[in-house]
Design a binder for these strands. Structure first.
Ligand SMILES: [Mn+2]
Ligand SMILES: [Mn+2]
Ligand SMILES: [Zn+2]
Ligand SMILES: [Zn+2]
Lengths: 121, 121
DNA sequence: TTTGAAAATGATAATCATTTTCATTTGTGA
DNA sequence: TCACAAATGAAAATGATTATCATTTTCAAA
């Protein structure tokens, strides 16, 4: 188990929202930070292990990371133009919790996205 | 746009539940079917386009496919042993619809998965 | 039946994110 | 200073997915 390089976390913070490992790496390069891609991957992974960062997936399967701190939310995405609206998931949170309880699962997380065609398209 | 090779759909049916493109391909090879990996990918993709098949993602980001025909449901997956429970998503359905209405989206679909550690693990 | 355009196919190469290897550097306590 | 563990990163390996492109199949019109 390696400890996370603090500059990786700091960069992810500044990235605003989401960022993939590749993006974090490129960002650090542009800012003149000297770091290897391997270390970026390792650091993000251990941040996930430590539950400091959430791991999500882009539509194409690429892993993206976001600070846990930020308010948990979901997305409403337009399949045509890609426009995204951040939405609350109150109902989901309860649903996830009750389903997990009902089946004896612990350490529970969830994903939920809504997609459709927006009014402009 | 290519049409789906019917043997691919037939194989996915027999795969029982989920299968990745690679798995469908290997399955067909074992059964002596002569088909190219490319065609498997293309067929699955057009089945998804035609809404005959759902596209989901494994924990590691790999794309997996499942027949839509089956009653719409969601999954509660154990991150440790992979055990999966199919669950109802009544609350989700309403949530997705109301969120979409509220923001003027139409042709709406959604994904929702819950993951955690099961009681056996 | 012959013909030709369009669709389908699949071998191969290209992409690209992620992981593995492994040699080197850095930190740290005795 | 010394010995040893942890961290680092360059380079190669891996593996899924996609792009190319030449060949084959389909099929309707002539
Ligand atoms: Mn939520
Ligand atoms: Mn649902
Ligand atoms: Zn739109
Ligand atoms: Zn389990």
């Amino acid at each position: 188990m390696s400890r996370s390089n603090p500059r990786v976390l700091s960069t992810l913070e500044r990235a605003g929202g989401f960022a993939s490992a590749q993006e974090v790496y490129k960002l650090m390069q542009r800012e003149g930070e000297k770091i290897g891609l391997t270390t970026v991957y390792r650091s993000l992974q251990s941040l996930v292990d430590d539950k400091i960062v959430d791991l999500l997936r882009r539509e194409d399967g690429e892993a993206i990371y976001r600070l846990c701190g930020e308010k948990h939310h979901h997305h409403l995405v337009c399949k045509s133009c890609g426009d995204t609206v951040e939405i609350e998931g109150g109902a989901i949170e309860k649903w996830a919790k009750s389903m997990a309880d009902e089946h004896g699962f612990r350490d529970v997380g969830h994903t939920a996205e809504i997609f459709g065609i927006c009014s402009k398209c």
